[in-house]
Design a protein around this nucleic acid. Structure first.
Lengths: 348, 348
DNA sequence: TTGAAAGCGCTAACAC
DNA sequence: GTGTTAGCGCTTTCAA
């Protein structure tokens, strides 16, 4: 910086003023400084900058490196933060790097606030963190007075899925749940209350699943043993739903002819033309905007009336749900078939 | 830090010594400082630390937020960097944030070196960057004197896939390529030379694909129109291969009974039990270790003999490849069927 | 083993 | 509009 100042024939603070694009420099000097900086390949050191300003303008983000939907959320967080004059610093959760370590890394970077994507940390840990700095939990529900939450109304999402299926004529609707994953409890209860609303309270059928393709596949195999076979299944998320789809089709069931399937997230996965999964959209852009806005409100010490922001989900109807076909309703199924569709055989 | 020093009744530099775990403090003072730090909830500010030391010990990583295999690589980079005393700072490429911006963000953070995962930047841009600081490109081939490369021998990988298929009796083997994606050219040429090695030079059949599930699905639909139908297809990567699998199965083909499929990467995707994709493993741990080691060598000004490190890939045989079945060889196929497997119908 | 002093690159407060 | 001065939190001489 001193080099730039010398080359431009001005003082160091003036260089600072020019580089930050703030008022207080003549157009001539501005141009001179810019040129000198260019020639010297000078780049401001953000660390030193942030060190000097007491505020770091840095938001830490913890995300799962394997989560497709987290990818969508990170994509949305960048522009949302930029719009409000903040930067993001990312910390990944991997199979060998848990959330604690991811958070610890961010704290060392002196970020002013944390946005956690679907964290699995216990509420108490989140509360401890939130005592130190603003913490916004994205895509999970947490009941703690210090922790802000931005999430989709998961119960309503499953309600919509069930309503849609009932509207198509389905009565035996199963749910493959997400186990202990964030949001799983809400989705389960949404499923149950929706069934009850349609007078199907006794027909509930919950299989234990999870959030990976394999979890979905495993649950689907369990589902195939049920008699009578459900005619529709709502799955915890898109990822698990693709596992379900694969297993159903490999076992000779047509989707949606024999059985309808819904996912959750409207992730990239669901939108693929060959998957075309009916699903519940979580609006990544709205979620991320709300999360960053909340962080900034907290940092600006604005009073916040509601701790939890719950966004409405949206049903996206694609091609994995449809009306019952006669065949599916009447065809008796004597057991789990090996080659249910003629020459087709399972690859499992 | 001053607070900690005051509370422990020592000087500030001594606190520094203790916090960094270096020699030069008595056990008593060490304990006193640690306790004071604990009580005050003190955490060293890494920005200030790095500002003071001229070296930042920071490696910038550019990765694609949607790439499953990049996730595997990031997972491997963390421990590799930690083992050598470096930290990682992540910068994501998203649909709205290109590689240039991702790199610019890292430069501002004053990282000392860059590791780029399968970058699509032109060689010239990479060269420019590499003139400033050590740059290691991971999982892509780049010919530039300043740019270090750590990658898998992609040509050899496809060679292995083709050898495996030929060994199973396949003769009509297609390749769905990755278009302009990093590594695509090598894999294409590996496919071609392998065919030639088996006297099948005239039987080459390359369909244009890409790196997403949709790219694979599209290519698979094109493949279905070919007569005679290939009995095996090697796909650019696992992600595209899953798209291929879906389309093939939805159109009534059994895998591997009617057609064998191979992927590339051995990503999480391929390992899923319901996918069980035969694939080429890129050893993420070895790749990431080599990349970090190379970065550190450069930063230590060690002389480096080979600019490019090429690791051997490994064929992982799972359940999407197998011998030809009589049915598949002889069954004439009159056109692209709507309901090729009896009551099964396509959901497209 | 410990402490005093200087400075990393930058910006805020002030005086000119 | 411009320069001077001071200091962000830390580490590194160097002297005691």
């Amino acid at each position: 910086m001193a080099d730039v100042a010398a080359r431009a024939g001005v003082s160091v603070p003036l260089v600072s003023i020019v580089m930050r694009d703030v008022a207080g420099a003549s157009p001539e000097n501005r141009a001179r400084v810019r040129r000198a900086a260019e020639e010297l390949g000078y780049r401001p050191d953000s660390r030193a900058r942030l060190l000097r300003r007491s505020r770091s303008q840095l938001i830490g983000v913890v995300f799962g490196v394997q989560h497709a939907f987290h990818g969508d959320l990170v994509s949305g967080l960048y522009p949302a933060a930029e719009a409000l004059g903040y930067e993001l610093t990312l910390s990944a959760v991997t199979p060998h790097r848990d959330e604690r370590r991811a958070v610890a890394g961010l704290l060392q970077d002196r970020c002013e606030a944390l946005i956690l994507l679907g964290p699995e940390l216990p509420t108490s840990s989140l509360g401890q963190l939130a005592a130190t700095m603003p913490v916004v939990v994205l895509a999970r529900s947490v009941r703690h007075r210090d922790v802000d939450v931005v999430r989709t109304d998961d119960a309503a999402g499953l309600h919509q899925a069930v309503d849609h299926l009932v509207g198509l004529g389905h009565r035996r609707i199963a749910h493959i749940d997400g186990g202990r994953a964030p949001g799983a409890a809400e989705r389960r209860s949404g499923y149950l209350t929706a069934l009850a609303g349609h007078g199907l309270a006794d027909a509930d059928l919950i299989l234990s699943g999870g959030l990976t393709e394999d979890d979905g596949a495993g649950a689907a195999r369990a589902l195939l043993d049920l008699r009578p076979l459900p005619t529709a299944v709502t799955v915890f998320n898109d990822r698990a739903a693709t596992g379900v789809l694969d297993v159903l089709r490999q076992n000779g069931l047509a989707v949606p002819g024999d059985i309808s399937v819904t996912g959750y997230d409207d992730s990239r996965l669901a939108r693929l033309s060959h998957v075309a999964l009916t699903t519940i959209r979580q609006d990544a852009a709205a979620l991320t905007h709300a999360a960053v806005a909340r962080v900034v409100s907290r940092l600006d010490h604005e009073t916040v009336d509601v701790r939890e922001q719950v966004l409405a989900p949206e049903l996206i109807i694609r091609q994995t749900t449809g009306p019952l076909t006669t065949a599916a309703v009447t065809a008796p199924r004597g057991g789990r078939p090996d080659t249910p569709a003629g020459r087709r055989r399972s690859t499992q």
